[in-house]
Design a protein around this nucleic acid. Sequence first.
RNA 1: GGGGUGGUAGCUCAGCUGGUUAGAGCGAUACACUGUCACUGUAUAGGUCGCGGGUUCGAGUCCCGUCCAUCCCGCCA
Length: 595
Amino acid sequence: MARSHHCAELNLKHIGSSISLSGWVDTVRDLGGILFVDLRDRRGITQVKFDPNLDKAIAEKASHLKQESVISVQGKVTKRPEGTENSNLPTGQVEIEATNLEILNISDTPPFPLDDAGGDKVNEDLRLTYRYLDLRRPKMRRNLLARHKATKSIRDYFDSQEFIEVETPALFKSTPEGAREYLVPSRIHPGSFYALSQSPQQFKQILMVAGVERYFQIARCFRDEDLRADRQMEFTQVDVEASFVEREDIYNLFEGMLKKLWKDVLNQDIQTPFLRLPFVDAMNRFGVDKPDMRFGLELVDLTETFKASSFKVFQGVATTGGSIKAFNAKGLADLTQGELKALEDIAKSLGAKGLAFIKVEGGEWKSPIVKFFSDAEKAEITRTLALQEGDMVFFAAASWDKACAILGRIRLEAAALLQKRGKLTIRHEDWKFLWVVDFPLMTLDEEAKRFVATHHPFTSPVPEDAGLLDSAPHKVRGQHYDVVLNGMELGGGSIRIHNPELQKKVFEDVLKIPADVVENRFGYMLKAFTYGAPPHGGIAFGLDRMVALLCGTTSIRDVIAFPKTQKGQDLMAGSPTPVTEKQLKDLHITTVIPT
RNA sequence: GGGGUGGUAGCUCAGCUGGUUAGAGCGAUACACUGUCACUGUAUAGGUCGCGGGUUCGAGUCCCGUCCAUCCCGCCA
């Protein structure tokens, strides 16, 4: 038998037993005569003793071991001598007196340290090149385990709610309305392509028409967009859809899932129901549609205050439909020139002309713009922002959405600066869940000068707004909801349109997609809806982001076994690669490499 | 497509205003060491300073280009 026990279970109860262990050499401590090996498997570490007084040949053999070699050891569990116990190890009361050693594979010296602290500092490209070594690190092993627990918890939950998991195709047809897609050439149909599914959205709605009623899937999705710390080209969605539901049903269902998930993975109790925050309030108070509510620094609106101001920059914006927003970065008056410059650059990158501010220092307002303010304006600023010594106020004057976006970002940066100074504490495990609701159904695409669906074109309007679809599409609220945690969008969904006429109207009259294109792309769906489509709705959320949060990491690469780099490469296997002429010929493809 | 940061020994980093033979810690190798647990001690080896070009008497250092990684903007219905 290769092993009778694993490396985390032996203790005083096993003393005297003959056992066998297999695993990797974590460390070798050769004291000249006696020699200790920390033997590691996926469960933990056990100390093995090689004593030349007991067996000279085995001790000699062990002295040639290198770290990360794979060995199998037979021996007897013994109590460690008084004073040599290791309280840091669960197995630290005992050790194995080796009676036999089998060297299964000697390892080359690893190219980087495999402990948590050392490995964390290593360049990520090196970790990705040797991912099999990186994954041996305790932290990465924990992350893989947490992901497994999360998916198991989710499957158990939906099963208990009588949802069934249905697989849908990865090879779908191209629908260029959404994210850029990965195309797959058809060998059998020259010149035609599949698209890798960017989400199972259309199939899950069809499953509702099919009478499945309660569907979920842990589904792989593909999007050919630029990568980020929280975005990979292929990622995993927990995709859910149910018939005969309203928004409240989805909120309850999903809150239940998250409650169980947090309990199963972290053994923590989270509070439900979550706060419901309308989109407009989220923007006005936090400047984003995914607010981090673990800290304040909320935005205020000063548009009215500055409508008659002698400060022309603000007055001009305030009287021409724009907004003047501000917030108090409490205690940040000691911000350095460099930090201020960095904030200005961020503001400008978001379309601000500059970043107006007031520093309250030594009882005075230090600011390049304050000389333009009247006493009444100053009083109003002091009152609404609760200004005190040591505070720092930032302003944005622009269109409403731009002003919100600028300060929303500056608010996050200011919070980071305050945290660095120890003036603000933001705890990772302070779980502030919320639903953001009442999104506008349509958003005006400035470039294309037409409306685009905020969420997707299948989202149902809020019933009382449906009459505005023709006259004022941007005023129509959608039955769309996002679940947000600590500044991260975990997922979103909506109650869908189940009426084929309404769906057709949204495609053709509101989104202005030509009728023949609608028929070509979505005709099958509209047709399906004519055969008794039940009212339905659902939600999808990013499993990778969720697991990253559970593991306390900001990069989803840390919770994906084999992620790709920002340029979409697999550094270990070396994809993508060119292919042979024959392969291309079979697929009726010719390539043109840009020079 | 754009902006920021980084690339010096196997790993993590230092290397000021250009100036002799580019350093440290960890790791590796060898030897010593019989109760260590990140063992310890002594010694040794290890470098195309990402790559290409330029300025200069002289470039790790300055300039231009380029590649890679990463963070962000655009993008992600």
